[in-house]
Design a protein around this nucleic acid. Structure first.
Lengths: 219, 219, 219, 219
DNA sequence: TATGAATGAGTATTCATTCAT
DNA sequence: GATGAATGAATACTCATTCAT
């Protein structure tokens, strides 16, 4: 497991290194920081601990990140992009409109599966986001903005589309979102954070979740 | 508002003082601690700040609570009881069985309204619980125990009762709970923590939430 | 010598404790700080060193002085008052006008002797002031203000008085001051800072200095 | 002004490069170091700041100067030579003896004017010397040596010469020097460091200073 | 020769906790 | 019980210096 974890953290860090400008040491720092902070929280993690775990001198951290907080931000900010990635991509809405998905349910299924995989491979990062969001208003702001500017509008477009097709009840988008989103997030949090070690039949759980949502908002 | 807040915090503290063994100073300490910690988080709140806000010497805090963490525990542990209070009370299951509620929906409505009021009057305490739960395994344990030992069994009993009555689909309790709970919690968090200042039509929102749940698990 | 120094530093600190509000520890901190900073300079003196020398925990320093700089300011600000004390006292000008001194030379003699004694008993404090003045604009400001608002006006009044009496040449006060002050300060710095260990015939040196000044500005 | 400053600093550096052995980078380093250190002091100036200002990598500084202190010494040591240059030059004494100056006053005038120009063009270097002298005993030593071995003897020779000519009072050289030097230095410091931005009538001020000195030590 | 990433000892400051009064 | 001065371990951050390239 330790081995597979090693791999996992390296992949996470690679995600943060999208423009490939990071040095080896910087990658080690990020890897260590994610590992420890996701386990113990930002305030319980000292820079000296990160340095030790990263196999790097403490000063090296501050060569790359002016402050400890900057390091947190460097970890947590890219996640907002990836969380809402599907909504940014134009294909998202396009696909919905195209014949890719015959029904809303099909669309929803694809969406949930996609986000399921995303969460699965990003648990440590998402733990950090969940835990620290309350304490860092600047980070909160980034997430709120992404939601109101990108995610929410894209959701509405899609919902409108399928409403016209007659797949959905005649309920305000606002309401639909307020119902469906916690159902999805609730599932993912239970699955990967509250009870990650329980035995899960993922396929079935996803199907049940979607059924549940469709009963609530589908026609 | 400041005035009404004063009142609110005093009430919160009274809840923690159920056996009436606390001194005046102790109440002041708890009140101050809840106020500040719920705003800034445990690690961003110093004991000296709490002491000042409580109008008490710093040493006095440690006369009542051996460590800062003990203070947190003193705040956060009683909440678990109150959160799950309905499930502890024998009346809870009894009521369900009695004729108090003709249908599951009626029961659910009463339950959600009850928890709605609870959350409404306990926002600061619940914020603290939500924020700190991740970082303090001992506290987590208390919550997990309460859930598995009390809440979950009680829920099952009730569900079984209404299943027999034919109000509910023939789905495993496990699944029903996994669907319904996030719907309720999701609503309450959105309502009181994420967007407490939005304009809410609470009655309508509760009704919608229940409809949504009932569509998913009701017959 | 160590013994006499002990005494000396305690006296210096007493001067800073004029309102008698300082605790024992605080006096120890000031004493240690003056001793070390006057020898090695502010930037070469660490708070841990001061704490050790003062026989006090490092945290204790910061209980009394919010920052290291605050400690410096606490040492250096009172000195400005004492340096210019004679000019603050109303007696200063009054005496000059009264029959206390028949001639300007007599007056000057009394003044130089007085400042000589002051410098003699305040060498460490004055060293600190001289050394740090360049680096701390806030401190500079305090000194400039004292000079322009108190010292300079008082000097002018006195000079005018003795000009009328015919003791002094008809030269602008400005010029007189620019000549006489460096002569006095130059003597005191040479005497107590540059060559404190040379053999000095103080009485004679003071007389010579005054003669020199009087030749320059006296009639 | 920025332009004229650029020029000024380049000239200062050229002075330090008398044997023309310095590389371009080295000159840039010195220039940057003088500029920043004279403004903010040695301890408030980091080598990285100097490197950046010099347009040079941080390591380059240490290729030329083993330590940061060495850099300071490289800046400050040559100044001692230039400060006391007139006394080193054999012409200095010779001129005094030759018919170049009919009287001591003439000689003094030439000397003060010469040092006035020197200070004027070396303010940044002299600021550094004044500020740092207290903290670096090695540098102090260099200055003390130059004074006792060269400056003082040369002064004495000159004074003796003019004493014989009957231009000066019959006072010990020691005393004369102790009076005259602070008068000159006091003027220059006031003029260029304490109040560099005041409106100065330099010619007149120099004359006044010399008159003042001559009254004190001239016959 | 020049670079600049990496180092790690050193520093000011914070803060939970103790304890004499 | 209550106080608040004192503690000292812990922490984020700086910076002169080194060294592989």
């Amino acid at each position: 497991m330790s081995d597979s974890n090693e791999e996992m953290f390296k992949q996470l860090v690679e995600t943060l290194n999208q423009d490939n400008t990071m040095t080896q040491k910087q990658l080690q720092i990020l890897e260590a920081a994610i590992k420890i902070i996701s386990e113990k929280g930002y305030y319980n993690t000292s820079t000296s601990e990160i340095a030790k775990q990263a196999g790097v001198a403490e000063g090296t951290i501050f060569r790359h990140y002016r402050t400890k907080k900057d390091l947190l931000v460097a970890i947590v900010t890219p996640v907002v992009t990836n969380i809402s990635a599907p909504f940014f991509a134009e294909q998202f809405v396009d696909q919905a409109f195209s014949k890719s998905y015959q029904t809303f349910e099909e669309f929803l299924y694809a969406f949930v599966e996609n986000r399921f995989e995303f969460v699965k491979t990003n648990v440590p990062l998402l733990k950090i986001v969940l835990q620290e969001l309350s304490f860092h208003p600047e980070i909160q702001a980034a997430y709120k903005r992404a939601f109101t500017e990108k995610v929410h509008p894209a959701m509405c477009e899609v919902l409108n589309h399928y409403k016209k097709r007659g797949d959905l009840k005649d309920i305000p988008n606002q309401t639909m979102i307020r119902m469906a989103v916690p159902s999805i997030i609730g599932f993912l949090i239970t699955r990967f954070i509250i009870q990650p070690n329980a035995e899960w039949n993922d396929e079935q759980e996803i199907k049940q979740t979607i059924d549940y949502i469709m009963n609530g908002i589908g026609k």
